[in-house]
Computed example of a mutant assay.
Amino acid sequence: MTIQMVFLMPALFLVMFLGLQGALYYHAREVALAAAQEGAREAGSETGTRDSGVATANTFLQDAGGTDVMTSTSVSASRTANTATVTVTGTSLSVIPGWHVTVTQSASVPVERLTE
Rank of each mutant, 00 (worst) to 15 (best):
Q105P: 00
M70V: 15
S45Y: 12
A77T: 06
S92H: 06
G98A: 02
S106I: 02
T115I: 13
S72T: 11
N82I: 02
D68W: 02
A40L: 07
D68K: 09
A107V: 10
T73H: 07
S52L: 14
W99R: 01
V95S: 04
T102W: 03
T47D: 13
V95N: 01
G66F: 06
A57Q: 05
G98H: 03
S106G: 04
L114W: 14
T102V: 10
A55P: 04
G66W: 07
Q62I: 05
V103C: 00
S94G: 09
T87M: 00
T49G: 13
I96K: 00
Q105Y: 05
G66M: 07
T83A: 05
T73Y: 05
P97E: 06
H100L: 08
E46I: 15
N82R: 14
S78Q: 13
A84C: 11
R113Q: 09
G53R: 10
N58K: 13
P97K: 08
A81Q: 13
E112I: 09
V54W: 05
V101C: 00
G53N: 11
M70F: 03
E42I: 13
R50H: 01
V111G: 04
V75L: 08
R79A: 07
A57N: 07
G48H: 07
V95Y: 05
A43G: 12
S76M: 04
V69W: 07
A57P: 06
D68A: 14
V75Y: 08
V111S: 09
T91E: 14
G66I: 06
V109N: 07
L93S: 04
M70T: 13
V109S: 07
V111P: 01
V75N: 02
T85G: 01
S74Y: 01
S106N: 10
A55M: 06
Q105A: 12
S52C: 05
V103R: 00
A43P: 10
T104L: 05
G90Q: 06
G44Q: 14
A84M: 11
A84Q: 14
T115G: 08
R50I: 15
T102C: 00
G90A: 03
G44W: 15
T83S: 11
T71L: 05
D68C: 01
P110G: 10
E112M: 10
A77Q: 04
T47R: 12
T115F: 04
M70N: 02
T89Y: 02
T73S: 13
R41M: 14
H100I: 03
S94C: 02
W99K: 01
A84I: 10
A57S: 09
G66N: 08
T71Y: 10
G98S: 05
A81I: 08
R79S: 09
V111K: 03
